[in-house]
C-alpha cells in the first residue's frame, strides 16, 4: 500500500536526520481537522526579528548615518534606520527558519518561537521574505537605491552565505559571517551619501574584527551546546587552545583598527585616547582568557571578555556619535 510505504519512509528518514518542527507536526497530527499553525501572537513574530541584535544594528547604522558628510532630512534618516532595522530583523527571521533544527538543541536558543512550537517554519519563512523585500524596496524608493541594494546584499550575505552555507561547514563561520553584522553602519552612511568611503569602511572593519573574539568567548563557555548541535564552531573543531590563540590574535588586530577613526581625522583626540585604553583592556582580557585554561577561572575569564566586548563596541560607537553631535552642532 503506497500510504504505508510513505509512512515507513517518513519514519526511516526521521531516524536518519533530526526532524524539523514542521515535519514533526505533520507526523504527529494525522487528523487534518486540527491545524497546528496560527499559534503565533504578534509578540512571537517580534521575537523572530531578534530584537536585541536589531537594537545593535539600529545603533551602529545610526552612527554611520550621523557621521556621513552631507545632510539627509530627519524624516528620511528615520525611514532609513527603520528600513535597515526591519531588514536586519527579516534576516533574523530567515535565520531562525533555516536553523530551527539547531535552535531546538541549544539551551540558548530552544525557547525561540519555532522550537517552542509557536510559529511554524513556513510562517517564519513567509514573514522573513516579506519583510526583506519590503525593507529593501522601501529603502530604495524612499532614500536611495544604492543603500537599498546594499541592504539586499547584506540580507543575502547573512541568510545565504552565513546561515545556509558557512555556519554548518567551516569553523571560520563567524569570521566571514560577521561581515553581515558589520555592514549596517556602511548602509547608514550610504543612505546619506549614496556611496561607500574609507571612513565607512573603517566602521565596518571595527565590527568585523570585533565579532570573532566576541563570539569565540561565548563559544568557549557554550561549546557543549554547539557540539551537541553539530555546529562547527572553532572550540568544537580546532579545540579550545587554538580558539584562545585566535582570540588573542584578533584582539591585537582589533585594538589599532578601533583607533583608526582618530588617525583618519573623523574623531577627536578624546576618542583616540579612550579607544586606545579600551583596546588595551580588551587585549588584556583576551590574554587572561588565553592564560586561564581550566575550571571556573577559565569560564569566568571568557564570560568577562564576552561582556566587556559588548561594552567596548557600545562605547566606541557612542563616542563617535557624541562627537559628531557636538562637532556638528
Amino acid at each position: 500500500m503506497p500510504e504505508r510505504n510513505e509512512d515507513a519512509q517518513a519514519i526511516k528518514s526521521s531516524k536518519d536526520t533530526p526532524m524539523s518542527l514542521v515535519e514533526r507536526q505533520d507526523t504527529m497530527h494525522e487528523d487534518s481537522s486540527v491545524w497546528t499553525g496560527g499559534m503565533g501572537s504578534a509578540s512571537d513574530y517580534v521575537a523572530l526579528l531578534k530584537p536585541r541584535v536589531m537594537s545593535l544594528v539600529i545603533f551602529t547604522a545610526f552612527v554611520g548615518l550621523m557621521l556621513a558628510p552631507g545632510s539627509l532630512h530627519p524624516v528620511l534618516g528615520a525611514v532609513a534606520i527603520l528600513c535597515i532595522a526591519i531588514g536586519a530583523g527579516a534576516s533574523g527571521a530567515l535565520n531562525m527558519w533555516y536553523d530551527a533544527d539547531i535552535d531546538e538543541i541549544m539551551s540558548r536558543t530552544k525557547k525561540r518561537p519555532i522550537p517552542a512550537g509557536k510559529i511554524t517554519r513556513d510562517e517564519a519563512f513567509a514573514f522573513g521574505i516579506t519583510l526583506s523585500a519590503g525593507s529593501v524596496v522601501a529603502l530604495g524608493l524612499l532614500v536611495n537605491w544604492f543603500a537599498g541594494a546594499f541592504l539586499a546584499f547584506t540580507i543575502f550575505f547573512y541568510v545565504v552565505v552565513y546561515t545556509m552555507w558557512l555556519k554548518r561547514s567551516t569553523p571560520q563561520n563567524i569570521v566571514i559571517g560577521g561581515a553581515a553584522g558589520a555592514f549596517p553602519p556602511m548602509i547608514g552612511w550610504a543612505s546619506v551619501t549614496g556611496s561607500v568611503s574609507l571612513e565607512s569602511f573603517v566602521l565596518f572593519l571595527i565590527i568585523f574584527m570585533w565579532t570573532p573574539p566576541h563570539f569565540w568567548a561565548l563559544a568557549l563557555f557554550k561549546s557543549g551546546d554547539y557540539r551537541a548541535a553539530g555546529v562547527p564552531m572553532l572550540p568544537v573543531v580546532a579545540g579550545e587552545t587554538s580558539t584562545r590563540h585566535h582570540i588573542v590574535v584578533y584582539s591585537i588586530l582589533l585594538a589599532p583598527i578601533a583607533v583608526a577613526p582618530y588617525f583618519l581625522g573623523f574623531a577627536t583626540p578624546v576618542y583616540g585616547v579612550v579607544s586606545a585604553l579600551l583596546g588595551l583592556a580588551f587585549v588584556g582580557m583576551a590574554v587572561d582568557v588565553w592564560r586561564k585554561r581550566d575550571g571556573e577561572p577559565a569560564r569566568l575569564a571568557c564570560v568577562r571578555l564576552f561582556k566587556f566586548s559588548i561594552f567596548y563596541l557600545f562605547i566606541l560607537f557612542a563616542l563617535l556619535l557624541g562627537e559628531s553631535l557636538v562637532v556638528g552642532a
Binding site: 481537522s33 486540527v34 491545524w35 496560527g38 499559534m39 503565533g40 501572537s41 504578534a42 509578540s43 513574530y45
Partner: peptide
C-alpha cells in the same frame, strides 16, 4: 476545512491588530 481553536482565534486577533 480547518477549525480554529479558541487559542488560535485569540492569537489571530493579536496578529490582525498588529
Amino acid at each position: 476545512g480547518i477549525k480554529l481553536t479558541d487559542e488560535q482565534k485569540k492569537k489571530r486577533r493579536s496578529r490582525s491588530i498588529a
